[in-house]
Design a protein around this nucleic acid. Structure first.
Lengths: 132, 132
DNA sequence: GTAGCTGCAAATTCTTTGCAGTTGT
DNA sequence: ACAACTGCAAAGAATTTGCAGCTAC
């Protein structure tokens, strides 16, 4: 079974504090506040085991490296800001998409990603400035 | 400007014949029928320049390597078979998704991916057999 | 005390690039 | 002719893994 190490706690805590899906590199940076010597390999191993125990969930978007967020949200989708690249949860769903598939195709699930300008970026009118 | 080489013609032709989005490795395999010595590096270079001249379009799905299909289709989405991993076009769209975003978020575009069992796989009941 | 964890470095996978030789136009 | 293209091998970027030492239980 899993042990309760400082590293694992720091990884989990970093994701919980963020409130939005984080990249492995962002998790590393945030978790190094608690555990300065933390390595990226440990972050990857921690992320994998936290996903397996159901504490966090992977968020995979087209052309993007997999991010991670706290698990337990119900079915939801994501919004990616075209300006800062940050990803946000969208707790809404068009629903009933099975009818869109070609005849003979059986739909079991779906992923939806919205793209545009997020609240913070819309306010300041920043153009393609990376997230902090 | 671009030159008309056997390699480029073979790459383009492989994608046109497929009728569905192909992985770079699938393009290589299909194009090697025309040009046996074709290298993967040339496939990548050819794909990039064909995208730039608008002949083909990249298809990027969550957790998947970018595939390529012929350009010119109007707005559409994709279906990925959970059994054979192949990707198909879906010429339908739920439309009007801007209302799903949080207040203050501006939606400009969206990506939708359906998952399930494709026609061919549904018929034979194959379980997780890779595409040919 | 010991099995599981950690950091480091090396290995993997996918994609890009440098280079010297080849080929359209 | 000459610039664009090609194959090969090496370089990159993201992720995984082998290993020897560390640590929670």
């Amino acid at each position: 079974m899993e042990r309760n190490t400082r590293q694992r706690a720091a990884i989990r805590s970093a994701i919980e504090r963020a409130g939005r899906p984080l990249l492995p590199a962002e998790v590393l940076q945030a978790a190094q506040v608690d555990v300065p010597g933390l390595s990226l390999a440990t972050v990857y191993r921690g992320l994998k085991s936290l996903v397996e125990e159901g504490a966090i969930a992977p968020v995979s978007l087209p052309s993007e490296v997999t991010r991670y967020e706290v698990a337990g949200h119900h079915h939801h989708h994501h919004f990616q800001c075209l300006s800062c690249d940050r990803v946000y949860d969208v707790h809404a769903c068009p629903g009933d998409l099975g009818r869109l598939a070609p005849p003979g195709f059986q739909v079991e699930s779906h992923d939806l990603t919205l793209y545009g300008r997020c609240g913070p970026c819309g306010e300041v009118g920043a153009s393609k400035s990376r997230a902090s």
